[in-house]
Amino acid sequence: MHSDRAPLGLKVAAGLGLAFMHLPILLIFVYAFTTEDKSYQWPPPGFTLKWFAVTWERTDVWEAMGLSLKVASISTVIALILGTLCAAAVSRTKFFGREAISLLVILPIALPGIITGISLRSAFNLADIPFSFWTIVLGHATFCVVVVYNNAVARFRRVSGSLVEASMDLGANSFQTFRYVILPNISTALLAGGMLAFALSFDEVIVTTFTAGQQQTLPIWMLEELVRPRQRPVTNVVAMIVVIVTFLPILGAYYLTRGTDTVAGQGK
C-alpha cells in the first residue's frame, strides 16, 4: 500500500493541515517589519527595520531575556541530573514501585499546567516561602525532568543489557562502565533531552505566573504585552526573536536523535 500514490484529497487535506500550523507563525515575521504601531493593520502600510533598534534599547526586554536564560539553564541542569538518574534506575531492573516512579515523572506534564502552578503556589504559601529566582526554577525543573527522562530511558534500555555486562566482563568497574560505555551511548539522547528541556523552560508561562511573583521572564513580559499592549511593534520583534531562539534547539535535538529508535520531542 505504501507504494501507492496518495489520493489527491488526502494530499490536499494534509497540505492544508500543515499550512494551518505554519502560516500564523510566519505572519509574525511580517509584522516585525511593519511601520504601523497603533493597530494590527493588514496589509502593513509599509516596512521598516527601526523596531529592531527600538527593541535593542529596551532594558526591560533584556532583563526578562536574561532571567529566562538563567532559569532555563539551571532548570535544564537539574532536570538532566534527575532525569538521567531516574532513567538509569527504571531501565536497570524491575524494582518495586517502578510504575509509580514513571507515573510520578510524567504527572507534572500530564496534568494541566495550571494545576502544577497553583499547587506550587499553595505550597509556597503554606510553607511561607517568598517568591524568588529559585521558586521559578523549582517549578521549571519539575516539569523538565520528564523530557530528559523520556529521551534517556529508551537509550538506557538498549545499553543496559549485554553492553554493560560485556564491559564488566572485560574488567571495567561500574564507574568505568558508566564513563566508557554508558555515557558515550546516551550522550546524544541526553543532549537532545537537555535542549528540549531548555526550550520548554524558556517558553513556559502558565506555571511561571504562579511561581514568579513580581519577576518577569520573557514569556511573562510577553503576556503582559498581550493583555495590556504598550508598544505593539516591540512585541512583534520579541515574538520573532523567541521563535528563532526556540527553533534552534529543537532543530538541534532533531538532528542529534535522527535515525534512532526514539526521535526527540514527541513527549512534550
Binding site: S162, L163, E165, A166, S167, L170
Partner: peptide
C-alpha cells in the same frame, strides 16, 4: 571472559 550470544560489541 565471555563471548556473548549477540556479541555485545560496543
Amino acid at each position: 571472559n565471555t563471548v556473548f550470544q549477540d556479541y555485545a560489541l560496543f
